[in-house]
Design a protein around this nucleic acid. Structure first.
Lengths: 346, 346
DNA sequence: ACCTGGATTTACATCGTTGTAAAGACCGAG
DNA sequence: CTCGGTCTTTACAACGATGTAAATCCAGGT
């Protein structure tokens, strides 16, 4: 049976508003009354109707998080972090999968959930800056990742260029000469995603080492999953002179590449050293374990939630902020070799 | 700016209800009027307020899915399937992480989200049957997995006993004599989870082969993640006579075990054959690729959503249903050896 | 006993949408 | 030209909770 405030009120012999006051911890309620009302609430197992509350208050206590895919570990791990950070503010998170489709991202951003959500954290893949202009007015918005940096919207990301540069430096530091990169993308709408930034870092590192970028060593990928990494690695191994190190723009790409290397009987890192990006748990348990760039996911989540909180609190006057979070190069067996490191716990 | 029905109505010169009718595709609206109203809706970029609609209709169009952890690939993949199945019904999914905590599961089940959700799909870990009695009255509920089978609630799962039996048969079929199992749990509240069922299947298979269960070969685990599998494998390898095959109750356990085997320089499957459970994508790209039991996740999701739909439609009279979905033994390199199979795409 | 000001409690309107029922418009038949 | 019936449109009352402002209570000071 559905229990309303009025049911509780009837049982406790007080007005509806008094029950509401008790339920919300309003101060000026006589202890004796409070007790009686609370008993009624407990007896009837009253739960406030959030739709009604939300309608009245204009706030639902729900925020949305839209990511390209939940079954990509990086986003799954990020989601966990966001859910936890949001919980600290008493928020519930509605998770949406966009599959990287512009259309779906736009739907989400323009309030598909119509006032059901108080704010949105979006990890855009296909969306362009200008398409966001309109929706921004509706729902407080925070962007994750580098897709739309420096735009008119709050934004959190790692310094991808610098991270990619250091990752490549790490490979060069091992003495490798032919360092490939897996993650270049041709898709027009990837023009402002992470790909070009990590690419820039990679090329910058090579340049600093006096190496010219070899187009053969930068195969295109269709996505950032294992299968894409596997294909790219096959392409690289088909070269007359294959690489002796590879920087993969995601850990999944690296794991796909690793799989192909193992199939071909090539040793990692002796024949080919490998470093990824994201620090997903999988990489700690692969054989060999995967060196990687570890973005501070918790920091990303916390900042995103905090910024959203500020926006919702109405500090609209504040101009859009751009937050950079830390990252760390984590060398493991795929670059250092066996016995240098064990797996670190999850 | 917030746009309400009344704003649209004013602009189109009609009543609020007519706008509502147009927005909801009500039939008897003069084409001319419909057109004018639609134009106003588009101009003002009107979005219905779901809180209000939900309050009025008693339905929100949102269902919740509560899983133990989003960053465990099995649940991430299952979540994707549920989100897709729900979308076909026009439902949005609110994803909750319970971390396997009884308390959190109870909160979710007893309508923490207070009337915000129309139904709940719960994958329980800690909760007991009787604790659900009360909450059942509030929100339509469907359970996933075997934690609380045969109870008073709708329920979807694979036949874990049979699946485990066949997985073990597969190892025995390779001629292995010392087949270990990783996944036994001592926790009292795991008494009715998947562990005992898979355990029963394992023991049944051994019995049929005339082998007595060796307690040494069934180490306890604290959880079903990689780290737990790694620890258990270490325990097994410390035995005077280690196993020549291992059935892991989850793919993550198997991947943790695989990692340890590789560290010790043991060959899989030559020295130790390995089979997991869940068919997560990771297992297709590990080296060697992981043989596994593949539950029909899409079927699980579809059935769960369908059953929830029936409950929400009010067929309360129907007694609780118990649906078994299919599964498949997928042999890969970790039991068949190299070259027998390639990785199958994601 | 009466007044004052703060503590408590209450009535009422309101959030935006939609079901209900009734009013208004319009058509062809008689 | 009126009547009955269909098609359109509308007014109004909910849904459940809470902000507002007013009503009621009460203790302490005159």
């Amino acid at each position: 049976m559905v229990v309303r405030l009025s049911d509780v009120a009837a049982r406790a012999g007080v007005s509806v508003k008094t029950v509401s006051n008790v339920a919300n911890g309003y101060l000026h309620v006589k202890p004796e009354t409070r007790e009686r009302v609370q008993a009624a609430i407990d007896d009837l197992n009253y739960r406030p109707n959030l739709s009604a509350r939300s309608l009245r208050q204009g706030r639902s206590g729900v925020i949305a998080l839209a990511v390209p895919a939940l079954d990509m570990p990086y986003f799954a791990e990020l989601t966990r972090a966001v859910v936890e950070a949001a919980a600290e503010r008493g928020w519930t998170v509605l998770v949406d999968q966009t599959d990287g489709l512009r259309e779906r991202e736009l739907e989400v951003a323009s309030g598909l959930r119509g006032h059901l959500i108080d704010g949105l954290i979006l990890s855009p893949v296909g969306l362009e800056v200008d398409e966001l202009e309109r929706s921004k007015e509706d729902t407080p918005l925070v962007l994750l990742g580098e897709k739309i940096a420096g735009g008119p919207v709050d934004h959190v990301a790692v310094d991808n260029v610098e991270a990619a540069r250091l990752a490549t430096d790490h490979l060069l530091g091992l003495g490798r000469k032919r360092v490939a990169a897996i993650g270049y993308q041709a898709r027009a709408d990837a023009a402002s995603g992470v790909a070009p930034l990590r690419r820039r870092g990679y090329e910058r590192s090579l340049a600093a080492a006096g190496i010219t970028v070899d187009a053969e060593l930068t195969p295109q990928v269709a996505g950032y999953r294992r299968v894409d990494g596997a294909h790219a690695m096959e392409t690289l191994l088909a070269l007359p002179e294959p690489p002796d190190a590879v920087f993969c723009f995601s850990d999944l790409l690296a794991l796909g590449a690793l799989r192909v290397l193992a199939e071909r009987g090539l040793r990692v890192p002796e024949d080919v050293a490998l470093i990824g990006f994201d620090d997903i748990e999988d990489g700690r348990y692969s054989t060999p374990s995967l060196s990687t760039v570890a973005p501070a996911k918790d920091e990303i989540a916390r900042h995103a939630v905090d910024m959203l909180h500020d926006r919702i609190a109405g500090r609209d006057a504040v101009p859009a902020r751009d937050v950079r979070v830390g990252f760390e190069i984590v060398p493991r067996e795929s670059t250092l070799g066996r016995g240098q490191t064990g797996p670190s716990g999850p």
